[in-house]
């Protein structure tokens, strides 16, 4: 169990000072956990030794946090924060350079009537659109995130997945959103999943020694049980994920508040054990300001202040942005505008 591990590793970790998952020191912290990832058996015993999750209790907690009432100044703060955390996404077969450039323009200036409006965190595209997005975003500071590893199914041979990743990084991707092999996870081949994440992480390296940040997508809608979600969260963090992400947005069930809360708890426990800070990204199905605020409340009351930045929490979304903008306009003008007062992507 997590705290027991914290205690057991106390001499190694000695007062875990927080280090970012993407930083150089993180590797040393993960090495201190090397015995649990030494072989298939050890990894399995560790993951199955994590405390179980009571579904009713988890869902009740998420629902209670959902009743927090965020008004006035708190609402204004939260809306701008949510805006700045968006990975504005287009992942369609019909994507074209024109569509991607339009999305980038929107990401830079979400509200054309208010240049004070914060820009989004990243533009999320398929690997072949990375170069286009990179160029369109110029020096805006907005990251380009690229899905990779045979997104969304992840059903391809490892060399193909790694090539997919390297391509995206070479084209300039700042962040890679990989999908795990759910088939391997569900059939209990945890070490395969672990090794694959590690390999993709290595493929994120750039020639200059830096690396694209790695987000690991679980597709929690396919993993189904909360116990699985807790296990896969630890597995990915042990393998070196910089972010853990719920969903591709391509299956029936995407991000939900209970699943996200559980992942936040896993990140909290991993941090308490190793001192390594990992980010969380719920994706898919978050469309309204009301929903986004519920997620921010969960972050606030589970992980707190250090995670309330785009460096450590993201929304994978597209239509959420316009709802945030309409609510933002309402706060400043006192009236609701309408869909014609925000831009179509």
């Amino acid at each position: 169990m997590t705290w027991r591990y914290a205690r057991r590793y106390a001499p190694l970790v000695t007062m875990p000072i927080t280090v970012p998952a993407y930083g150089k020191e993180a590797a040393g912290r993960l090495a201190s956990m090397a015995d649990v990832t030494a072989d298939d058996g050890a990894l399995r015993r560790f993951l199955h030794g994590l405390p179980g999750v009571d579904a009713v209790g988890l869902e009740a907690r998420a629902a209670t946090l959902g009743t927090r009432s965020i008004k006035t100044t708190a609402k204004a703060y939260a809306i701008d924060l949510a805006l700045s955390m968006i990975d504005l996404t287009t992942l369609e077969g019909a994507d074209t350079p024109g569509k991607v450039r339009a999305l980038c323009a929107k990401g830079i200036h979400p509200d054309p009537t208010d240049r004070g409006c914060p820009q989004v965190a990243a533009i999320c595209v398929y690997p072949d659109m990375v170069a286009t997005a990179k160029e369109a975003l110029g020096g805006s500071g907005i990251h380009v995130a690229s899905v990779a590893t045979a997104f969304p199914a992840g059903r391809a041979a490892l060399p193909v997945k790694l090539a997919d990743t390297r391509d995206a990084v070479a084209a300039g991707a700042d962040e890679i959103d990989m999908v795990i092999d759910r088939g391997a996870f569900l059939s209990g081949r945890y070490m395969d999943v672990f090794e694959e994440i590690k390999a993709v992480r290595e493929a994120c390296a750039r020639p200059d020694g830096s690396a694209a940040h790695l987000k690991v997508i679980f597709e929690t809608g396919e993993l189904q049980t909360y116990d699985n979600v807790r296990r896969v969260s630890w597995l990915a963090m042990l393998a070196g994920a910089d972010f853990i992400k719920t969903s591709t947005g391509k299956v029936a069930v995407n991000a939900t508040p209970p699943v996200t809360l559980l992942m936040l708890e896993a990140v909290r426990d991993f941090h308490a054990t190793t001192g390594v800070q990992v980010g969380v990204k719920p994706a898919g199905g978050i469309r309204t300001t009301k929903d986004a605020l519920k997620y921010l409340v969960m972050v606030n009351e589970t992980l707190g202040e250090p995670w309330l930045t785009a460096d450590w929490f993201r929304f994978g979304a597209s239509s959420l942005l316009n709802d945030l903008l309409m609510q933002r306009q309402k706060l400043s003008t006192g009236r609701y505008s309408g869909p014609d007062y925000v831009t179509v992507d």
């Binding site: 169990m1 405390p51 988890l58």
Partner: peptide, 11 residues
């Protein structure tokens, strides 16, 4: 000791 700890805390 085998309780679902996060939910036990809530409980």
């Amino acid at each position: 000791d085998d309780a679902p700890l996060d939910q036990a805390v809530e409980g």
